[in-house]
Design a protein around this nucleic acid. Structure first.
Lengths: 340, 340
DNA sequence: TTGAAAGCGCTACCAG
DNA sequence: CTGGTAGCGCTTTCAA
């Protein structure tokens, strides 16, 4: 029906005034029609003319102008740095975004790699988001939270394991992952337990609490924990496997399934039998771990449901006081297979 | 130095007028100082007063107001739907974002899962991005491109393998991945070649061109290609392995390393020897693939450098005509290990 | 060297 | 039922 307008030429972008002019009405009327304003009754013919004019011009409202006028936006900002790997996060992320959009928020991820904490907070604040949900990839400081709140953010929610003053903390207790894994190893009779600490940047926020959780798990049991720095490379794993017997370990919680697979292979190549000589436990319950021989024991993590979090965000936006301060969002349990 | 202002209370967000008032100057002066306006000389004492006032109030400029006034933004919008899987994308993404920020763009990922093509384009257009870089997760239509351009986007760049009218296409030739894998299999003497097509949503845009590339590779060689739908689940793989001999295949390009690992295990469990009876090739050159026995052959993909793409985006923004229309951004080559 | 004021696109109040 | 208009926060021209 639309005739191909040959004038893709650099025409300026249409505004509601253009629509009004074309439809022969005022800008106010255009606004009413396009926003389905309930408080005002516009005749059907007028509505049609307005809609047609908007369509004709390819009119799209200007979000900045709108939220400037409104005095608030419905943008939820998710800072990201290192794109988190693994299906766990992917699914969580998708769910969260989808659910927030259903609640009529605009979800925007802000790539913040390489920004310092407060610098980042300021950059986010410029966009005047109504809420910021930090997955813990970019460290937030109390000052950063203050900046965001001062700039109008109703809710600043951190999902990391570290609590930040002023922010709503929805604690994902990573420590728990390390704890249950280690408890399991102690239960099956292991005493000298290694805990892999990845050397890759961006993982400290998970790795440190997991190590700490492992330490808690052995407290009073007589078992001991040894931190094992490891890069996600064959060389690094082989090097570690090479001095394994010197370390005198009989079990290892390998951070996650991927590191576990890497390390397990290196151990086997070094002639160390799994699980007889050394038990191995990963986490995340990846499909690939089930394919190994021996099958990899793992910690299954129930990530918080995205929808649930979306509702929490919405609640916090509507009434910042309404959100419970801390809340554990990670249920973790060991799935014992053959490697432990 | 700053005394802890106890009044975190719901004070309205500070504007440049507040800063001006506190500093005892006009709003204009504030703007000059904070933007380091070169055209105007402001006395050093005044500058200090302004800066201190801004600091004191925790003033952060309002991006919407600014770009409304300026008539343009420096926002680059990256639509995302399914978070891309694998380290390949992660690294690319991070590089791109980092490089664009260095060029003074604000990079924003817009979660678009579940939005229809034109609906999505309209949503993006509301933000008036200066450029849109689509990684092909959300299908763009010519109309969508038109909407974006009309709303002021200087550059609409697609990285998918499908070309979209009106957009700058930076083709990532996924077909090539399938082609080199299949050529390799033909070279080593295989004739009946299966090509895994994942059934998971969001992967069609990679899977289809790869299958097509495989078809091209066998043309005229006497070898044949069979599409093999597969879900990323053990059951699905076992089911496929169960009818493997009936299919009469002597090789398979398994989409990527993860699917390859899954399928290879299922084949081995079904008593089909790799590579003797069936050769297996994946892609992405994951570390985990090297840990298998037999070691997994794979297609190594050199993803375009993020920095390179960032410069292309910048070029397109400055002069939309300057960008070469199509350009191949995927160099792929087979890494032969033991599974083929 | 600084200030006054216009205006970006939009919505909501108030008149007609 | 529709139109005029003020004003959101910011930058920039023009005057002082």
């Amino acid at each position: 029906m639309r005739k191909p307008t040959e004038q893709s030429a650099e025409r300026s972008v249409p505004t509601s005034a253009d629509v009004a002019r074309l439809a022969g009405v005022s800008r106010a009327t255009v606004s009413y029609v396009l926003n389905n304003a309930a408080a005002v009754r516009i005749s059907e013919p007028t509505r049609r003319r307005v809609r047609e004019a908007a369509e004709e011009l390819g009119y799209v409202p200007h979000a900045a102008a709108r939220s400037l006028r409104a005095g608030h936006s419905r943008m939820v900002l998710l800072p990201t740095a290192h794109v988190p790997i693994g299906p766990l996060y992917s699914q969580f992320f998708n769910e969260l975004q989808w659910s927030l959009r259903r609640l009529d928020y605009t979800v925007v991820q802000y790539g913040s790699l390489g920004l310092e904490a407060d610098e980042a907070a300021r950059a986010w604040a410029e966009l005047r988001p109504v809420a910021v949900v930090s997955l813990g990839q970019v460290q937030l400081t109390p000052q950063g939270v203050e900046i965001l709140k001062r700039s109008g953010a109703k809710a600043v929610i951190t999902l990391g394991s570290q609590r930040v003053e002023g922010a709503h903390a929805l604690v994902m207790d990573q420590g728990r992952v390390g704890r249950v894994a280690t408890e399991h190893l102690v239960e099956v009779g292991r005493r000298r337990i290694g805990v892999v600490v990845p050397e890759e940047p961006g993982l400290e926020m998970f790795a440190e609490p997991r190590l700490e959780g492992a330490r808690q798990a052995v407290a009073g049991t007589g078992a001991t924990v040894v931190a094992l720095p490891l890069r996600y490379e064959e060389d690094s794993a082989n090097e570690l496997a090479g001095r394994w017997r010197a370390l005198g370990l009989d079990a290892v919680f390998a951070y996650n399934d991927e590191y576990a697979m890497l390390l397990m292979r290196a151990l086997q190549d070094a002639g160390i039998s799994v699980p007889e000589e050394t038990a191995v436990v990963g986490s995340d319950d990846l499909l690939l771990g089930r394919l190994l021989r021996p099958r990899l024991s793992t910690v299954q993590i129930d990530m918080v449901i995205g929808r649930h979090l979306a509702e929490l965000v919405d609640g916090a936006v509507r009434d910042p006081e309404s959100v419970p301060e801390a809340r554990d969002l990670l249920a973790s349990r060991v799935v014992r297979r053959e490697s432990s």
